[in-house]
């Protein structure tokens, strides 16, 4: 992953693949305090029509936040992260997390962010704003 050349908005993007194991889901439940059974109790999830344990939406958002924070590390900070969940992702399945610079207004950089399941379906869509603390590199 390299730093964005933000003067070329629209052409810079970064992606990373994350996979949540049962251990990941339990770790996230413990750290976040979200113990909704759909994320670790397979009979509970299946009784609600899900084929597998669902990845927490907020874990996917955390992955996106980390992606952007590490992308802009030392050069800026997220001021807004806004996502909408359009589909579920499930344990042990790869989730591609992506970010793309879409514009700049002064020190503020606008990004599109998303997650996609293995078949390419975008399961999370959203935007982020980064306030630069340094000029573009």
């Amino acid at each position: 992953m390299t730093g964005p050349r933000i003067e070329e908005t629209g052409s810079e993007e970064t992606t990373r693949v994350e996979t949540a194991s049962l251990r990941t889901l339990v770790q996230y439940a413990g750290a976040s305090g979200d113990f909704y059974e759909m994320h670790y109790d397979i009979p509970f999830a299946q009784a609600r029509g899900h084929r597998e344990l669902a990845v927490h939406g907020l874990l996917k958002t955390a992955w996106l936040g980390r992606l952007v924070e590490e992308w802009f590390a030392g050069r800026g900070a997220i001021t807004v992260l806004d996502v909408s969940y359009r589909g579920m992702d499930f344990r042990d399945e790869p989730v591609t997390c992506g970010g793309r610079v879409t514009g700049r207004d002064g020190a503020r950089v606008a990004l599109e962010v998303w997650t996609a399941s293995a078949d390419g379906t975008r399961t999370t869509i959203g935007t982020a704003e980064v306030e630069l603390t340094e000029g573009p590199v």
């Binding site: 996230y28 979200d34 955390a62």
Partner: peptide, 24 residues
């Protein structure tokens, strides 16, 4: 650690307040 970041890091992730929500 749960979100895949370096667990020894001290930067506070932007989403940390998710832990301070009562969910659900």
């Amino acid at each position: 650690r749960a979100i895949g970041a370096d667990e020894d890091g001290t930067d506070v992730p932007v989403t940390i307040t998710a832990c301070f929500l009562t969910e659900p």
